[in-house]
Nucleic acid binder design. Structure first.
Lengths: 211, 211
DNA sequence: ATTGGGCAGTAACTAATGTTACAATTCAGT
DNA sequence: ACTGAATTGTAACATTAGTTACTGCCCAAT
């Protein structure tokens, strides 16, 4: 585990901290589609991603969803810290977007390290910084953009995260992520196909050019 | 200044920190409507609110606005910290909602105190926590609610912040805050009036019952 | 008293998004 | 091969929100 840590967090943390993390952290592998956290769950640990990606979503009372952002290697979940601090339940849902490797750190350590290691403080602040900006970005998107533009951004991000020009999702799944309806998404995707920017297939979409 | 600090931050910070803040901070009074920060401004200091309220807004390239939240006594602006950390320009706009008293602290001190005082760390984390939740709340509102409900929430918040049943805003101003159009807001306000929940007047709205 | 600008009311229309319904196709499991 | 569920395409329609245009009103400045 210490080697994985050095590879992905060596540029962020000093050796002493890496050692501490290795000592108290537990290594986990989760398969694609695995729900890491649901609304209302209590937060037991803080995830440090090694590889893969985690999809983080917001959900309202009716179960309507909205994709917030993805966590990738070298990142952690501010929402988790958020919950730890306030001793509150999770207000978000997190699902593995791909097979993912990560290290879980007990929440008590967080505070300890915050006092002890400047690099950890910087990491935590940086993480808050990034997440806050990402949530603001989503807010911009929802508040100021129309669905066709949001869909384009969504497809681009999918291509980036999965590092593949083929998107393995149904229209319904995309509709959930964007909090829209399947018919609307099918309609807009068809337009993109007619523009020659994507190819539609059953269960997957081939991206040609989104720029 | 030290007395103001003790009154509003005494329950958060130890005496030594209060003293430090008093030493390096500068006391400011800003009138209602004063723009504290515009998009693209560089951040020079971190505000600690003593009294009054600051309205924090998001703005897109076309100048369309959206109200994010209000800062009140005992609070600070995470966005500011956000900017300091990343050495980036402001991505938000801040305007005094009422006459406001506050203390500006140079950003360099932030990092120093984060290492030195646990109470300061907790304050900064708590602040991030609160702001992140507020932005999520606005996101919920924009993503999941219709304009009539958003308008209701807006009016409730206005009443709370200004501690008055009379809202001194034009329909146009409300439309800007909610990123809608004047006609739409007039239409919905008229419906609320017909339901007997508000009374409409020129330049102000009397709130009867919003529950 | 007159004038002009800001504010609010309203109608008519457009655009965007969401909903309902149904058909056609694919595909896995039997 | 058959069946049923999941997926996609499409039309028709409903709802919400945004736009344009015009009116009357209030009020402050001249």
């Amino acid at each position: 585990m210490i080697q994985e840590l050095r590879d992905h967090y060596g540029h962020l943390f000093e050796e002493a901290l890496l050692q501490e993390i290795a000592q108290v952290g537990t290594f986990k592998e989760v398969p694609e589609g695995f729900t890491m956290m649901a609304i209302g769950d209590y937060v037991r640990g803080m995830p440090l991603l090694i590889s893969g990606a985690i999809k983080v979503m917001r959900e309202d009372k009716e179960g309507d969803e909205l994709l917030l952002y993805y966590l990738e290697s070298g990142e952690t979940c501010s929402m988790t810290m958020n919950c730890c601090m306030g001793q509150t339940k999770s207000e978000i849902k997190a699902v593995a977007e791909k097979d993912t490797k990560l290290i879980m750190v007990p929440v008590q350590k967080m505070e300890e390290w915050t006092a002890k290691y400047k690099s950890w403080r910087d990491f935590v602040f940086q993480s808050y910084h990034t997440r806050l900006n990402e949530v603001l970005h989503i807010l911009d998107s929802v508040a100021f953009e129309k669905m066709d533009q949001r869909l384009l951004n969504y497809l681009k991000e999918k291509v980036r995260i999965n590092n593949s020009d083929t998107i393995h999702n149904t229209h319904q799944e995309i509709a959930y992520d964007l909090h829209s309806s399947r018919v609307v998404i099918s309609r807009l995707l068809k337009k993109l196909e007619q523009m020659g920017r994507i190819e539609l297939h059953r269960n997957h979409i081939k991206v040609i050019n989104l720029d």
